[in-house]
Design a protein around this nucleic acid. Structure first.
Length: 594
RNA sequence: GGUCCGGUAGCUCAGCUGAAUAGAGCAACAGCCUUCUAAGCUGUGGGUCACAGGUUUGAAUCCUGUCCGGAUCACCA
């Protein structure tokens, strides 16, 4: 049990014993004591003053005395300032904590809890390459999956690929018209970029045709419908749905190119999936659910034959679930897919990592599943994240302001290389080792940059200013880890020599470091409960910062005594372990040297 | 118009289940490498927590209203 939890328990017990008052442990408010006061943790007494009819000083003293008498091995001292009871945890307790934790490389990671969670993330379109927004999605999804694993869940990562529809046909048409049989191989272009280029070509041509039609005296609305390239695209979609062999063939070929490109990117950024769903397989799902929904009177039919659900009682609108022509809409296949996932994996929770522009959609999805009384309904959780914007506003592909994922990754690796060469600390590395290091640092900087912000909030990326390598960044933490490992490598004999850990009171920075290390398991739990990797990013940064202050103030190798050295080596070891685990949960590797 | 989200230092962000003097990083300035990796450490300056009310012993945090920005409310996906 964590120290904070124990203090809460003890407070609850003390209040019961001293005043016969029932105070649930969860209601006790504990803070870390501010550095300017003496003590490790602070119990905030204000809320207890009234029910217990005590003054702050009396209550503080009575509690403090009770603690140091009844739980002397845990509490070693206390002081009261205004309504705050500052308690000091016994030195022995900290030493015991350090001693029993430092050699566990998986400190903070929980054993399996038997529950299964699905995390759907990434979910690309096959008509254009991944961009910065997708990176946020991929990093978030991967990270939250790992965080849940570390909390004991059995996690299934999935991806739904949007591989069909009118937008896919657009690049297909453009390729037929303009490519002259060109392929990614013949043009030495990555497959997803190759296809994306034809999507752009479609739009260029479409715009041109519209202008020509308008010049010929047709209205804009009419022109948009009548442009030959658009008509051809619509025909292609009909042909695709009819299974026309040459269309299917082209579709398969072009999607194949895209997947080759995606796989390369996924490998580079570390995304992986246990199961990939394709909309071409799932877009007809959910049709039977419309029928049963009608029978259950959850849905209703309008005169024109279209089917709806009335969500006005829930503060939403009426929502269409089947068109009058009998074809299904986006939400219908999502209901169907939710059911399919439920049947295939039977998970207790199903998390969708999808941008906040779809908040309404997921609210509706969950509501409909609930009203249909589907077993999948309860577990649906939309992990909504804000858009990544540029200082000039949203990224727009039409205006060429989209930050391409592959380009950005490449640039980050390049900057990592540059900075590493400037510092010249790893001149003895082999080419392979260097390549790996640049990748580790470059992606570390990028992932940390995108994950350190609360997912809910939109964030701003300025392409003019490259992502930092100093301060609140991935490389700062990687550097701290490498620094510790260097010390540990130089002191293996001391560690092996079997000296006993020092038992004199911890110095302030040693204490601060211990306090920060001890909360790590709670932080992992919190990050999972809130579905928020940034909690972990902030934690890991603070830990690295405290370690660096400690490092600067106290020598480890030349500690005052051999026993002190052992203690500090243990602290350093534990810090390295926690940094490594914490960064891993963000999808970031930490190097042994840099 | 309805619903939802956001507005904290020059910039990017923490803090938001109420608690001590509102914190980091970047940028600026001043120091620290003959000693464990200076991608580091220490210090200085920088704030009407959008605005106005309210609840409370106590509000950046909760409630109401206003202003500003964004998302969404398609027989699109």
């Amino acid at each position: 049990m964590s120290i904070v939890q124990q203090i809460k328990q003890f407070t609850s017990l003390a209040v019961k014993s001293l005043y016969n008052y029932d105070l649930p442990a969860e209601e006790v408010l504990i803070n870390a004591t501010k550095p300017e006061f003496e003590g490790d943790y602070t119990i905030v007494l204000f809320s207890l003053l009234k029910p217990l009819k005590k003054s702050p000083d009396t209550l503080g003293n009575e509690l403090g005395n009770y603690f140091t008498q009844q739980y002397a091995s845990f509490f070693s001292g206390f002081n009261i300032i205004k309504g705050f009871l500052n308690v000091t945890i016994a030195n022995e307790y900290w030493l015991q904590f350090i001693h029993s934790s430092y050699h566990h490389t998986d400190f903070g990671v929980q054993p399996g809890n038997g529950e299964k969670v699905m995390v759907e993330y990434s979910s690309p379109n096959t008509n254009k390459p991944l961009h910065l927004g997708h990176l946020r999605n991929n990093f978030l999804g991967w990270s939250i999956a790992e965080i849940l694993k570390a909390n004991g869940y059995d996690v299934v990562k999935t991806c739904i690929v949007n591989d069909r529809g009118i937008h896919i046909c657009k690049s297909m048409i453009a390729w037929q018209l303009f490519a002259n049989g060109a392929t990614p191989a013949s043009t030495h272009t990555k497959g997803d970029h190759f296809v994306g280029d034809y999507y752009v070509k479609f739009n260029d041509e479409y715009k041109k045709q519209i202008e020509e039609l308008i010049a010929g005296g047709i209205s804009k609305d009419e022109a948009e419908k009548e442009a030959p390239i658009m008509k051809a695209t619509q025909q292609m979609l009909i042909d695709w749905e009819a299974g026309k062999p040459d269309v299917i063939e082209l579709w398969k070929t072009m999607n194949g190119w895209v997947y080759e490109g995606f796989n390369e990117t996924y490998k580079q950024i570390g995304s992986d999936f246990a199961k990939t769903y394709y909309e071409s397989d799932t877009y007809l799902l959910g049709k039977d659910l419309v029928e049963s929904g009608l029978q259950k009177k959850v849905f209703f039919q309008k005169e024109d034959g279209s089917v709806w659900i009335d969500l006005t009682a829930d503060g939403l609108d009426e929502k269409l679930v089947r068109r009058k022509d009998g074809t299904s809409v986006y939400i219908t296949q999502d209901i169907g897919l939710a059911e399919l996932k439920q049947k295939e994996f039977n998970a207790q929770q199903s998390i969708y990592v999808v941008g906040d522009e779809q908040n309404y959609h997921f609210k509706v999805l969950k509501l409909i599943c609930e009203k249909l009384q589907l077993p999948s309904a309860e577990g649906i959780y939309h992990l909504s994240y804000g858009m990544v914007e540029l200082p000039t506003g949203k990224m727009k592909s039409r205006e060429g302001t989209v930050v391409d994922a592959d380009d950005l990754v490449e640039e980050m690796i390049h900057i990592a290389k540059q900075k590493t060469e400037e510092l010249g600390k790893v001149k003895d590395f082999s080419d392979d080792e260097l390549k790996e290091l640049y990748h580790t640092i470059g992606l570390g900087a990028l992932k940390f940059f995108l994950l350190r912000v609360d997912p809910k909030k939109k964030m701003i990326f300025n392409p003019e200013e490259s992502i930092d390598f100093h301060g609140f960044t991935g490389p700062f933490i990687q550097y701290t880890h490498a620094r510790i490992k260097s010390i540990l490598r130089k002191n293996t004999e001391s560690f092996a020599a079997g000296h006993k850990q020092d038992s004199t009171p911890l110095l302030p920075l040693e204490k601060q470091l211990s306090i920060q290390l001890e909360v790590f398991p709670s932080i992992i739990a919190e990050a999972a409960a809130e579905h928020n990797p940034s909690t972990l990013a902030i934690y890991v940064f603070n830990l690295a910062k405290i370690f660096n202050s400690f490092y600067n103030e106290h020598s480890i190798s030349n500690a005052e005594t051999e026993n002190k050295k052992i203690l500090r080596l243990q602290l350093a070891q534990l810090t390295a372990n926690v940094l490594k685990t914490g960064m891993h949960l963000l999808g970031i590797k930490v190097p042994e040297r840099m």
